[in-house]
Every structure is written in structure tokens, then in C-alpha cells.
């Protein structure tokens, strides 16, 4: 059986990769992908923790982590839909999907 540490290490790696991708990349589509990677790291952590915690599969709250992961997937999908709509409306006006060209609003 693969130990919990392995899952959590993988999840932390994914989260850090997503975070760096968000901070470094300037293409909005890639930025959205990075956020998606972060959210999937969270889902992985939830499911792994669930398996570590739930010794008795019939106990109340034995599937909390898995349920959380499902909600996380649904919310991530909704978030992507809204995000792509915003990117699309930006692209229609500026013909660009680069975050460093979104520089109209500043102090």
C-alpha cells in the first residue's frame, strides 16, 4: 500500500507547480491551467487524508474528504466557465490574452 506521505508529497508538489505557474506565466490560459492544477492538488490531498482517517467505512463522516473533493471539482468547473468568459470578453476588446498587457488600470 502506498503510504499517506507519498500522496501528500505529490499533492504539495502539484500545488507548488501550480502556484509558480500562476506567478510566472503571463498567458491567461496558462494561468487558468495553473489554478486548476492547484485545485486538483487540494482534491488529491482531501482524498488521501480521507483514506488515512476513515478506518471504518460505515462511520458517520467517513467520506467527508471524498465529498469535499467532488464539490471541489464542481466549483472548479464553474470557476473555469466564469474565468474563460472573462478572458473571452477581454480578448474581444484587446485581441490579447496576456496579463502584462492588461495595464490600463493603475494608480
Amino acid at each position: 500500500m502506498i503510504p499517506l506521505e507519498a500522496y501528500i508529497t505529490l499533492s504539495a508538489f502539484l500545488f507548488v507547480i501550480g502556484g509558480f505557474g500562476f506567478l510566472i506565466r503571463r498567458n491567461v490560459i496558462v494561468t487558468l491551467l495553473s489554478i486548476e492544477v492547484m485545485l486538483n492538488a487540494v482534491n488529491l490531498a482531501f482524498v488521501a487524508f480521507n483514506r488515512a482517517h476513515a478506518a471504518d467505512a460505515n462511520a458517520v463522516g467517513a467520506h467527508t474528504g471524498q465529498v469535499f473533493a467532488f464539490f471541489g471539482i464542481a466549483a472548479a468547473a464553474a470557476e473555469t466557465a466564469v474565468g474563460l468568459a472573462i478572458v473571452l470578453s477581454m480578448f474581444r476588446l484587446k485581441r490579447s490574452v496576456r496579463t502584462d498587457e492588461a495595464d490600463l488600470l493603475k494608480n
Partner: peptide
């Protein structure tokens, strides 16, 4: 981005 960071905190709390 902030929601993802907070959610990872939630996952750790659950863990």
C-alpha cells in the same frame, strides 16, 4: 488563486 491557497489550508486542517 487566493481561494486555492485557502482551500489547501482547509485540506491540511482536515488532514
Amino acid at each position: 488563486f487566493a481561494a486555492a491557497i485557502m482551500l489547501y489550508g482547509f485540506a491540511l486542517l482536515y488532514g
